[in-house]
C-alpha cells in the first residue's frame, strides 16, 4: 500500500482531482468525514490529511511514502526527501513586498522583515550579505508594514490584490514559481518502486 500525505483544504481537493485522472481511487476523499486516515476501496492507497506545513515531516520520516506540498513549505523546511514532480497547482510567487519608499530608515538601520518563512528569509538575506531583523508572524503578514512592525514582508503573493488594497507593492520577486510538488520518501522510492514509479509516470503525463 502507498501512503499519501495530503495538505488539508483546497490543495487536497486539487490533488485528489489530479490523482483521480491517474486512475487512483479517491472516492474516500470526496466523502464528508472527520476521519484522518482514509483508505481507498481497493486497498492500494492510504491517505493522511495533515496540515500543509506537516506534509514534508510525514514524508521525510517515511510514515507517508508520497506527499503533495507547496514549494514554499519545502524551501522553508529543507527536509531530506525527493522532489519528484512540479504539479503546477496553486501557483504563486515568494516576494519581498512593502511600501515603494522605506519609512523609518534612520531609526532602524537593519531592514525589518516580517514573514512566516523565517528560515527561507534568513537564507535569502544572508546569501546577499545583508543584516536584517526577521520578525516571525503566523498570518496577516501585510499588517506588519502598515502598522510599522516591519519595513517589508517576505511572503507568497498570488494575485497581489491584498497588497494593492493596502498600498503595498512587490519590491522583488525572489522565487517566481511556487507551486505544489510531489515529494517522495527517499527509501520508499526504492523499496516500493513497483507501485510508486508507475504512479509518478502517470502524474507526469497528467500535468504535462
Amino acid at each position: 500500500m502507498i501512503h499519501f500525505a495530503l495538505a488539508k483544504g483546497r490543495l487536497a481537493e486539487e490533488s485528489a482531482a489530479l490523482l483521480e485522472k491517474c486512475g487512483v481511487d479517491v472516492s474516500v476523499l470526496k466523502k464528508e468525514t472527520r476521519k484522518l486516515v482514509l483508505e481507498s476501496a481497493d486497498g492500494k492507497y492510504g491517505f493522511f490529511l495533515v496540515k500543509p506545513t506537516d506534509v514534508p515531516t510525514y514524508v521525510e520520516s517515511g510514515v507517508a511514502d508520497l506527499g503533495i506540498a507547496g514549494k514554499d513549505t519545502l524551501l522553508e523546511q529543507d527536509k531530506d526527501l525527493y522532489e519528484m514532480l512540479d504539479l503546477g497547482l496553486g501557483g504563486c510567487r515568494l516576494c519581498i513586498a512593502g511600501y515603494p519608499a522605506r519609512r523609518d530608515a534612520l531609526t532602524s538601520p537593519h531592514l525589518r522583515v516580517a514573514t512566516k518563512y523565517v528560515n527561507t528569509a534568513k537564507r535569502v538575506f544572508s546569501e546577499r550579505g545583508e543584516d536584517v531583523e526577521i520578525i516571525h508572524l503566523n498570518g496577516s503578514i501585510e499588517l506588519a508594514p502598515i502598522t510599522g512592525l516591519a519595513d517589508v514582508i517576505f511572503d507568497v503573493v498570488q494575485t497581489g490584490s491584498t497588497l494593492k488594497a493596502n498600498g503595498l507593492v512587490v519590491l522583488e520577486e525572489v522565487f517566481p514559481d511556487i507551486t505544489a510538488r510531489l515529494v517522495a520518501n527517499k527509501v520508499s522510492l526504492k523499496t516500493k518502486s513497483d507501485e510508486i514509479l508507475p504512479l509518478i509516470a502517470a502524474l507526469k503525463e497528467a500535468v504535462s
Binding site: S61, G62, V187
Partner: peptide, 9 residues
C-alpha cells in the same frame, strides 16, 4: 541499506 519498514537507511 534500505528496508520498506523504515523511511531512512
Amino acid at each position: 541499506g534500505l528496508v520498506k519498514e523504515l523511511g531512512a537507511p
